[in-house]
Simulated scan of single mutants.
Amino acid sequence: MKMTFRPTDCWRWYFDSEYDSLMLEVSPEMLFRCCYPSKMLVPDVFGEFPFSVSDATSYYQFYNSCQLLNLTDSQKIELAINAIVAANFLKPQMPKSWYFSQQPKLYRPKVADIVEVNLQEDGQKVCLMVVEVGENASLCIIAQASFTAMSKTFVFSEAIKVMNDRLKPIEHNIARHSEHLKLEAIS
């Protein structure tokens, strides 16, 4: 695996009030806008701060996990950066496990695991990435283009907390058939 997009000590986080979003400045010519609205973010992000060594470690951990998914390199980068934001800067969430069926065996996820859940309505399998593990529930982000459950549409990188008894290790054939997304740079 060749990675051409590597964190440096020049990367920095800052909040952009025009976009109402946390931004990651990768270079003067390249910005990344996280997908979470300001109302979901902890108050500490409404300023400017460096991309830390811990952030870089998390980036590689999440990016490496993305290799199981049929995503473009830019999608893997986007998923990894949004995973850092979800793990470190989102306000606490309550589980929304009612969308998903309980699994017959309890799975103990780890951070950066690619997992799947089955929709309650039709059993459809959905790909998630675990970004924060709790004793009973884990914060995950959507690791596929989108899905609809109970008339609500969930999109790529959206955060959702799920009870651990709903999660199971991903079947590799699911990961290989994910839809491709079209991403656009904002700068």
Rank of each mutant, 00 (worst) to 15 (best):
E184M: 14
I160Q: 05
S52R: 07
I142R: 07
F154M: 11
E116W: 08
A87F: 05
Y59L: 06
C34V: 00
V53R: 12
N173F: 14
D165G: 00
E78K: 14
S151I: 07
P104D: 09
S97D: 03
E179F: 08
Q67T: 12
D20V: 03
Y19C: 09
P37N: 06
T57W: 04
S27G: 10
F32S: 04
R6I: 15
F62P: 06
S178G: 09
F32P: 02
F89M: 03
D16V: 08
C140V: 07
E18D: 12
N173E: 15
P92F: 13
D113C: 04
D122Q: 03
I186M: 14
N173T: 14
S54L: 11
Q103I: 08
R6T: 15
N136Q: 15
Y107V: 08
L22G: 02
F46S: 08
C127Q: 05
Y63E: 07
A86M: 05
P104F: 04
M3P: 00
A112R: 05
Y14M: 06
G134T: 05
N82A: 10
D44N: 12
V26Y: 03
I81N: 04
L69F: 01
K161Q: 13
S74C: 10
E132H: 11
R6K: 15
F156I: 03
E25A: 14
K152C: 12
D73C: 10
D113M: 03
N82S: 08
T72M: 11
S21C: 12
V162H: 01
R166I: 05
I186C: 14
M30S: 11
D122P: 02
T57D: 14
V162F: 01
F89G: 05
T148R: 11
S74H: 07
Y36E: 04
S146A: 09
S52C: 07
L139F: 01
M3C: 05
F154P: 08
S101Y: 05
I77F: 04
E116Q: 15
P169W: 01
Y99G: 13
P7C: 05
L128C: 05
L24V: 10
D55P: 02
S38T: 03
M1E: 10
D55V: 04
I160M: 14
S101H: 09
W11R: 02
V131N: 02
Y60A: 10
A83C: 05
P7A: 05
L90W: 02
M150R: 13
S17G: 00
M150H: 10
M94D: 08
E184C: 13
I141K: 02
S101F: 04
E18K: 13
K152I: 15
G47T: 14
W11Y: 06
H177C: 11
F15E: 01
L71E: 00
D73I: 12
N64D: 11
A87D: 12
F15M: 03
M1K: 10
V53S: 14
V126L: 04
V133Y: 05
V126M: 01
D73K: 12
Q120R: 13
S146D: 09
G47R: 09
T72D: 11
L22T: 01
S58Y: 07
S187A: 13
E78N: 14
L68F: 04
F154I: 12
S52Y: 03
Y60M: 11
K152R: 15
L167G: 02
L79D: 00
S187D: 13
K91V: 07
Q93P: 00
L31F: 11
